[in-house]
Amino acid sequence: MAAGQPAAARPPVERDAAEARLALLQSQLEPHMLFNTLANLRALIASDPLRAQTMLDQLIAFLRATLGASRTTLHPLADELARLDDYLHLMQCRMGARLQARLDLPDDLAALPVPPLVLQPLVENAIKHGLEPHVAGGRLDVSAMREAGELVLRVRDTGAGLSRASTGSSHFGLQQVRERLVAMYGAAASLDLAAAAADGDGGTLATIRMPMRDAAARPHGRPRHATVQSDP
């Protein structure tokens, strides 16, 4: 009984956000990814110990960031992309030449606060449903830019396309991102998923739009714990 009380006493919005974070955490530590990564590590320990060490460091950084994500509300965009970089290195080790990834972060956006691992599910989705099922693999571009006073984050792959990406479990990861954005920014933020048809390379484009001003990061007038407090 006592254990149930604090949760029940919290306002619904905060409880929803906490549950969303927990569910996100569970989807993040995807066993399939973990065991495949461990299998690669096991292989490298014998054949290339130095590479194994690097890969292990990346896995540790990835796990630390994933587990830490439930404790901090915001972190700088540069940190978000650094965690993506760890994850993409792990995936590159597994997929080899089938994965070409590029992260593009303008310097003046690097310190902007964003929810931790807000891009991670989109990147995982692009790999799992876009590039991994695609025999030839493909390209993954993550970019950040300022558009009409908003922060716009894009994850684009040249993989199998939406019909696959929109089926089954991938809904969950995307749903989590949407719920976290709503919990944090209300209607001021959005996540869109569309076929990336413009350049003829196919694949899927995920776009997050969120307010850029620091004040917008504190919805409902409540102060929040944040690793980054100021807007440059």
């Binding site: 495949n36 299998a39 690669n40 096991r42 292989a43 490298l44 054949s47 080790c93 597994r94 997929m95 080899g96 089938r98 991994e132």
Partner: peptide, 9 residues
Amino acid sequence: EDEPLLADT
């Protein structure tokens, strides 16, 4: 096996 390291192993 699509992952080269795992296939070799």
